[in-house]
Design a protein around this nucleic acid. Structure first.
Lengths: 225, 225
DNA sequence: GATTGCAGAATTGTCGACAATATGGAATGA
DNA sequence: TCATTCCATATTGTCGACAATTCTGCAATC
């Protein structure tokens, strides 16, 4: 299970993020510091640092003197996230269509190839990491720190939303649509690229069940109060 | 000078943010932990927490084993911030035009009134805080945690950009344009409100000199005092 | 004269311990 | 039986100290 040596803050963040995305950690669950310190075999100080980062990403909420809890995004917030995401990703794609280096093209194509492998082998962990990572890689390729930070925030929140409201068992952010977008960018076809991206995001959002609010609270105390 | 009792993390963040916005802290300056701990009369642990939050807001960058430095946003990043801001603020205004409570209206009008007072009395500190606070209040009124967090991020970065690239001595985000926006929202006039907001943001961006970059300061204590 | 190597100093990273605060349940009284 | 008060427990908040890393100044060398 846990390594004998300590893990870095970033590793803790990624582990928690993945656990949330894979629905092993449900909204409302408290992330107790000492418990996590024991699991990751590090001191509480490092856990606190990781929790602060997770709060930045919108995955957990920290209540003073109470602790850190996995967020439960509302339906409206989910729609807001996708609304902003459509705009930001359009901005990213437009910038990329103005020209990318050969090295960037290779990196993008390699990433899609990795996604294909993960999909054929059906490795859930890799599929989740890579499908979000594709959109992050697009933003990184632009070279703007702000767009990258914004996209990371959006991807984190999208992962949480997907984990909560996904109504299919399959992860839809598949490599085929990603591959098409990459090729449109390579051809500097801004119209086609932005259209494909918009369609892709609509596709992702359409497979969410944003009408029904699920009963996620296992807070017995609140129910009996 | 510094108080005998310690200050909260949020107070430290606000103080640093204000110092950056007022150009007492220039991009590139290192924020040394021990020095700041002495200035604010708290332990380094709390300073580190504040620095992590400032990193989240995009105001400082933290390099491992090197320290925290005030960010210097590039011209391109400045344009990206305003691009995204136009979209998000449009979303906020549209949502507000669907109806706001009487209490919300009062809060918005009161805020504009405070801005007027600060402007007539020419209190720079209040002007900066309140002009950013107006846009933050709009997002808060919508009631979406995500939009609020996004707007806070955008406002922080905009403050830094304004501090770096402002070419006039006056703070242009004046209360008159804000007041017009509020009244359009009160009248549920979405077309006019979004138009006014777009014009307002164009106005703010137009007064920036996005060609030149300035140098940095070195006296941390004087800037924060 | 420019470059490299090496201490010493300065700064950040990490940890364990203690204080402050909230929670949950038992005891008490109406 | 229900509401209230109080206390034991668990959890978070804060701090000071030490370890690891990086920067700086100086001298030696090519």
């Amino acid at each position: 299970m846990s390594d004998q040596t300590g893990v870095s803050v970033q590793q803790i963040v990624e582990k928690v993020w993945l656990s949330i995305a894979e629905r092993r950690l449900r909204p409302g669950v408290q992330l107790k510091e000492e418990q996590m310190a024991a699991i990751f075999n590090v001191s509480r100080a490092r856990i606190r640092q990781a929790l602060a980062l997770l709060q930045r990403d919108g995955l957990v909420g920290i209540i003073p003197n109470r602790g850190a809890f996995v967020c439960k995004p509302s339906v409206e917030e989910a729609r807001d996230v996708f609304f902003v995401r459509r705009t930001v990703e359009r901005c990213v794609v437009e910038r990329l269509c103005k020209g990318v280096s050969k090295a960037d093209i290779k990196r993008l194509r390699d990433h899609v190839a990795k996604e294909r492998i993960a999909n054929t082998q059906d490795i859930t962990t890799d599929i989740i990491k890579l499908s979000g990572g594709f959109h992050l890689l697009l933003a990184e390729t632009v070279g703007s720190d702000f767009l990258f930070a914004t996209m990371r925030d959006l991807i984190s929140r999208s992962s949480l939303i997907t984990a909560v409201y996904r109504n299919t068992n399959r992860f839809n952010c598949g490599p085929d649509e990603h591959a098409e977008i990459v090729e449109a960018i390579v051809n500097n076809d801004a119209d086609r690229a932005t259209h494909l991206m918009a369609h892709h995001l609509e596709h992702v959002e359409s497979e969410l069940d944003l009408t029904e609010i699920r009963d996620l609270s296992h807070d017995l105390r609140a129910a009996l109060a």
